[in-house]
């Protein structure tokens, strides 16, 4: 059975990279004595995929991984045992079963499902607030082009972020926005905040902001009319 696990990552674990997070979960699942399915072959490893790597320094309340289990004693038991095996800085938020795929179809993995991501940006020290610029968010979005410069091996590339910004507003002093993610074309949250400040003509020191991933979405709609749902909505209680 495929199981989708939603978790948060915060505190000092902001400084753990993606590969190390994977290693942490591999060992946590074993400590939790969860009956994870292993690949066959000479060096078997756990069947496990992550939805989207989180950048160093970010925290999140919307991370996902899919695992496969050979047996279980229900979602509540699995959640409790995995939580007990996790270090401080990881909370298991939900555990759901992915429905069996239709014949001749494969389950779409967390990674393949990701179409959009929601983020919040706040000032770390709390001395400033995005509320000051709440009224400008609409004007920012009303631009036809939001150009972001990206350094690549071939030099600086300019991309237009506007079509990929699905939503942006100020809430409780935080800048909250949803952008395309995954195979659709990945927008990094830093690109959005940089462009926002450039639009305002405000200079903000590096590292002043804390970025928080709020949710990862799958798209159940069509290219013309997307229908974003949190990845956990594709799973079922068990």
């Amino acid at each position: 059975m495929k199981v989708r696990i939603k978790f948060s990552k915060y505190g000092a674990l902001r400084f753990i990279g993606h590969l190390d997070l994977m290693r942490t979960f591999q060992k946590a699942l074993r400590r939790a004595d969860i009956d994870v399915t292993y690949t066959t072959g000479f060096s078997p490893h756990q069947v496990m995929t992550f939805a989207a790597p989180l950048g160093m320094g970010l925290c999140s309340i919307g991370e996902y991984m899919d695992i496969e289990v050979d047996s279980h004693r229900g979602a509540a038991d699995l959640k409790e045992r995995l939580q007990a095996a996790c270090p401080e800085g990881i909370d298991i938020l939900s555990v759901r079963a992915l429905p069996e795929p239709e014949p001749n179809k494969k389950v779409i993995s967390a990674m393949a499902s990701v179409s959009a991501a929601a983020y919040a940006a706040v000032f770390k020290d709390g001395t400033r607030s995005f509320s000051d610029w709440a009224s400008q968010s609409e004007a920012f979005l009303s631009q036809t082009e939001i150009l972001s410069q990206k350094e690549s091996k071939k030099g600086t590339v300019t991309v237009n972020l506007r079509p990929g910004i699905r939503e942006l507003h100020v809430e409780d002093g935080a800048l909250v926005f949803t952008v395309d993610a995954g195979s659709r074309g990945n927008i990094r949250p830093e690109q959005v905040t940089e462009c926002f400040f450039a639009f305002l003509g405000v200079r903000v020191p590096a590292n002043a902001l804390q970025l928080i991933r709020l949710e990862l979405y799958a798209d159940r709609g069509t290219p013309e009319k997307p229908d974003f749902v949190p990845l956990e909505a594709l799973g079922e209680e068990f």
Binding site: S8, K9, Y10, G11, I61, A120, A174, V176, I212
Partner: peptide, 10 residues
């Protein structure tokens, strides 16, 4: 909005 803990105690 409930935000996770990002206070640096290091």
């Amino acid at each position: 909005m409930q935000l996770p803990d990002f206070q640096n105690r290091l």
